[in-house]
């Protein structure tokens, strides 16, 4: 199969970061601040995963992604189910793209 070794190499360097923490010895008592830090990670990670990525959703036209993000924010804020948030945001992005704003 072509690219076999590249794929194997990629598989190794993808699996190692995922698996590494689970290979460490268990029962370590973490300092309180490290526990707190690890528990704060999801909030920081989601902040970093959303921004600036969503800004660059449509390359040079940041308003496309930002329109979708705003729609997602509003539906999520109102407590609507995750599926509704997804559908609304994608619909808004498609709508803004169809409008064919310059860019």
């Amino acid at each position: 199969m072509p690219y076999f070794w590249i794929i194997c190499g990629m598989a190794a360097v993808t699996a190692i970061p995922r698996l590494l923490p689970a290979l460490l010895p268990e029962g370590l008592t973490l300092p309180r601040w490290v526990e707190r830090w690890l528990a704060s990670i999801p909030y920081a990670a989601l902040g970093a995963l959303i921004f600036p990525g969503v800004w660059y959703l449509d390359g040079e036209r940041p308003w496309v992604g930002m329109a979708g993000a705003t729609a997602a924010f509003i539906t999520a804020w109102k407590g609507l189910p995750l599926g509704v948030t997804l559908a609304v945001a994608v619909a808004v992005v498609m709508g803004v793209k169809l409008l064919g704003l310059p860019g």
């Binding site: 989601l46 995963l49 979708g68 995750l82 992005v93």
Partner: peptide, 30 residues
């Protein structure tokens, strides 16, 4: 591709409504 960002937003926003103190953490990450 917007769907995945919408999912992140749809997870983060209710998380922050429950724990408003974590807003600074999310903003700092961004």
């Amino acid at each position: 591709a917007m769907a995945l960002y919408a999912m992140f937003i749809g997870l983060l926003v209710p998380g922050l409504q429950r724990k408003p103190d974590a807003t600074g953490t999310a903003v700092a990450g961004a």
